[in-house]
Amino acid sequence: MGKYVELTSENFDATVAEGVTMVDFWAPWCGPCRMIAPVIEELAADFEGKATIAKVNTDEEQELAVKYGIRSIPAILFFKNGEVVDQMVGAASKDAFAEKINAQL
């Protein structure tokens, strides 16, 4: 079963460089982030081989949060070949996230 990728400043650029990637910027203290955590895991399984599903712990990766101008979490950024092509702020349903990913495939 597909698993989401844990991103750090080390592997971020290389991971989003090719194809479609959904990145969930989250933090352990954030209620809505915790709410969507199981949704992210299911998406990773559903989109295995089609899109990359990834997470950034903004508590540990503050540079990445600053770089992408994150000021509210969960913030979900959609990348296509390294470029940010769409984004969402706040918790949403699995279907809503899937629709955004499918729009880029």
Partner: peptide, 15 residues
Amino acid sequence: FGRGVSTCATCDGFF
């Protein structure tokens, strides 16, 4: 909204 305006202090206070 989400770029400085927030309704969740525990989520976003850290920023």
